[in-house]
């Protein structure tokens, strides 16, 4: 749950103008180009006991993603398909304005946008997750645990989630029971590797991978997920400002470019 503390709010309101002025002058406080990601450090398999996991450090933003498998009943309209569920927790350790409580609209949006990028790219071959039609299918549960918020939770969580899914391994399934302590060598049946890229709009400037201070000063943002073939599979615009049509197209092609780079460097 997010409660705007007077302390946090007041400092940002004073800084907002200074940050906007810097950006309008064509600069970012960490000297990045407008279309440059911060340094990314991944620690795959961080939670070795989970079926899959990845810890990411994107600049100072830190997120831990875990992947768990379970066997359940399929949805009635897709009796031979496995399932995917994505949840996010903005736990209080990550920011002074996060408080404990049920998921609020920001954590729900985070979960759903990351989920959309994965689902719409057809990354997971759901039919291959079927064990017994209509009765038993594998369900994949992705949990995004935000640990330190310095901007762009969307891309941080998404990149770590994809890495975690790439490395995840099925546990043993015997006599209708999942034996979590025994991992097989079998990985998820995957057909794509989506990458998400988020841009903030501050005044007339567009900024890839916004810092927290840039998010506080922004008018709007857009997250664009792309597939390995260079197609766009998911988009989410946020914030109450707007984008021009030219900006929409420009950002889409930047997202495809950025996606290729990230895929090459971190998501093989």
């Amino acid at each position: 749950m997010i409660v705007m503390e007077i302390n946090e709010e007041i400092l940002w309101s004073v800084k907002r103008d200074a940050i906007r002025a810097l950006i309008e002058a064509g600069k970012r406080s960490d000297n990045r180009e407008w279309n440059q990601f911060r340094a990314i450090e991944l620690a795959p398999d961080f939670v070795r006991k989970a079926e899959g996991s990845c810890f990411i450090k994107l600049g100072n933003t830190q997120v831990l993603v875990g992947v768990k498998f379970a066997v359940g009943v399929p949805y009635p309209d897709t009796p031979e398909s496995g399932t995917l569920m994505t949840s996010a927790e903005l736990v209080p350790i990550a920011s002074p304005i996060f408080r404990a409580g049920p998921p609020d609209e920001d954590s729900i949006e985070l979960a759903r946008v990351v989920d959309r990028g994965i689902r719409e790219s057809k990354m997971i071959d759901f039919d291959a997750l079927c064990i017994t039609p209509k009765e038993e299918v594998w369900s994949v549960m992705v949990d995004l645990h935000v640990l330190d918020h310095d901007g762009n939770l969307l891309d941080a969580a998404s990149i770590a989630a994809v890495r975690a899914l790439l490395d995840a391994r099925f546990p043993k399934y015997e006599d209708k029971k999942v034996i979590y302590t025994e991992k097989t060598k079998k990985k998820l049946p995957l057909k794509d590797v989506p990458v998400s890229s988020t841009f903030a709009k501050v005044g007339s400037a567009l900024l890839l991978d916004p810092l927290l201070e840039e998010e506080k000063a922004m008018d709007a943002r857009v997250t664009i997920a792309t597939t390995h073939e260079g197609n766009i599979c998911a988009i989410q615009k946020g914030g109450s400002g707007s984008f021009t049509l030219e900006e929409c197209e420009k950002l889409a092609s930047e997202a495809i470019k950025a996606g290729k780079e990230i895929r090459k460097q971190h998501l093989k």
Binding site: A50, L64, G66, E89, M141
Partner: peptide, 14 residues
């Protein structure tokens, strides 16, 4: 608080 993936059987958040 335990992260959902911290234990064998996934723990529901909260």
């Amino acid at each position: 608080n335990m992260a959902p993936f911290s234990v064998e059987d996934r723990k529901r958040p909260g």
